[in-house]
Design a protein around this nucleic acid. Sequence first.
DNA 1: CGTACCATTGAGTTGCCTCAAACCTAGTGG
DNA 2: CCACTAGGTTTGAGGCAACTCAATGGTACG
Lengths: 235, 235
Amino acid sequence: MKYIQTIPTCETCDLQKFSVFKHLTKIELANLSIDKGCNFFKRGNVLYNEGNRINGFYCVNQGVVKLVKTGIEGREQIIRFAQKGDIIGYRSILSKELACTTAKVIDDAVVCFIPASKLFGLVQNNNSFAMELMKLACKELGEANKFILDIAQKTVRERLAEVLMLLRETFGLDEDHVLQILLTREELANIVGTATESVIRLLSEFKSDKIIALNGRKIQFLNENTLIRLSNFYE
Amino acid sequence: MKYIQTIPTCETCDLQKFSVFKHLTKIELANLSIDKGCNFFKRGNVLYNEGNRINGFYCVNQGVVKLVKTGIEGREQIIRFAQKGDIIGYRSILSKELACTTAKVIDDAVVCFIPASKLFGLVQNNNSFAMELMKLACKELGEANKFILDIAQKTVRERLAEVLMLLRETFGLDEDHVLQILLTREELANIVGTATESVIRLLSEFKSDKIIALNGRKIQFLNENTLIRLSNFYE
DNA sequence: CGTACCATTGAGTTGCCTCAAACCTAGTGG
DNA sequence: CCACTAGGTTTGAGGCAACTCAATGGTACG
């Protein structure tokens, strides 16, 4: 982690238009930039650890961050990802609890830090912002609930197929249908909630079935419909 | 479900003092009572179904409601319980999504219904209320995240022990250490995320180990420390 | 060129699921 | 009062998905 030369200002940040900050006034945005910190983080860097008291929240400007909970014998469970425009740490601040996850960079990232007081100020004075924030929390809650059902009832194969489609939604594919995020087998296992070896075996099954192609950590999507069907997705 | 004679008014409702409504003014509380519906529901009644569009939220005055998601071959996963003072359905309203759970009564209940417009009005005009609501959503989100970790990494035995302690926290024990909520074995399984038979086998194991005593659906706690230890709870 | 990390494959084990049958209890109605 | 039914509970048997452990191969990097 190191200080970067040009701190992106919130007023000129393009991401702001599509994020939770979209309803802020010019003045509010300018105010947000004051006291703001901004750092560059390399893969593996940790923004904060589970159990930390954090006094602000983070806004991802570039790169990818994973939010993980650590369980039995240090095994990680990936709860969600954050990429450009996403904010993290807001949950702990609003609920006035300790951080319930560790935030670890998995793709070199530029991340801004905004003190909690700013967040509370905005919630107090800008109802649209408060609504956006609530919407965000409620959306995440809905996703978490869905994930509970999946992990409780689906097989590992179904979950892996679903996770692949989920990653596809989140990070997209390039022109060759290659997934635009590189994860280790272990990280994949930590999303699905299974053993690394199980992921490896299932991936190579999918490969023999011509559903995906593998090249190191690159995953190429060959047959999305089958993947959706395998994930046992309905409704 | 039938109309009840005396609709509890929000101003005089004791529950209000400890709930998300605790910062409302007398006037706001009075206003909340207007247009409010209130019904009595018997065990098995459904307040709303997963996928419904709901145009208001519910406040539990008496009894217990379970929120479930329905998965493969109709098997239910219990996401959380709501009892007196708790509100349900607010997530869908705030995130403007369809209901992500079905709300089913498991202990005869009196439940008030408040139109969504009232909720939005309060969020607009009362910042403390907006904060409380956000706090609630974020707290639930934290719990959901924890549950994801548990269900992904713990054994069924550990999860059952944990669920028993969780129920103990939520519903309490009477003077004989009997859990103050009656659930079928199937419902227990639907919280833990396992098969009914597995719950039965493990419960009778706990019984032979003198950790609990069973009498129909009544569960008596004999040794909470062992239960905590079995749940693999740490930190 | 060694070290570290990750990926892969095989073998063996087991926790948990499914299926099936029997039993218990409470409610209904003749 | 008893027979009947329905819903829930319990126990047994058998099978398999997925885990653990272990060994090997590949790749990147200082």
